[in-house]
């Protein structure tokens, strides 16, 4: 009987831990205006702003300007890393990170390619 209780407690503790971890890692999907106000990690989808300064490296950071497709707002993005492979052909860019010190500090970019190629692994 004691072992059953022990097992139950362990399972409940794990569910609690998983729930906390889940809440902690949720990254909402927001527009540019909301991204600038958010405190935690968020995901922002947009296009490369063609009118702004061309994408370039600044030290360890790849810097470009992301524009909201619908509202036309834009914000600078500082991506910690080098220019992603398919960046130039990108159709949409999704940046994951937080807005801090006047720029969106991102450590993950999802690059969406043009719809000519339905890019999927046949799954």
């Amino acid at each position: 009987m004691n072992r059953k209780i022990l097992l139950g407690v362990l399972v409940l503790a794990f569910i609690g831990y998983a729930g906390w971890s889940f809440m902690d890692s949720v990254t909402p999907y927001v527009g540019i205006a909301a991204a600038q106000k958010a405190t935690g990690n968020v995901q922002v989808k947009g296009l490369l702003d063609q009118k702004a300064e061309a994408p370039h490296m600044e030290g360890d950071y790849f810097v470009f300007t992301l524009q909201d497709e619908d509202t036309g707002e834009s914000m600078p993005v500082r991506y910690h890393g080098t220019k992603p492979d398919q960046f130039d052909e990108a159709h949409h860019i999704v940046a994951v990170g937080t807005f801090r010190d006047g720029a969106f500090q991102s450590d993950k970019l999802l690059i969406k390619c043009p719809s000519k190629y339905e890019q999927q692994k046949g799954k």
């Binding site: 998983a18 889940f22 902690d24 890692s25 949720v26 999907y29 995901q43 994951v96």
Partner: peptide, 11 residues
């Protein structure tokens, strides 16, 4: 919203 991949690793 989506979850960060760290969620999978941690749990």
């Amino acid at each position: 919203a989506a979850v960060d991949t760290s969620f999978y690793v941690r749990t």
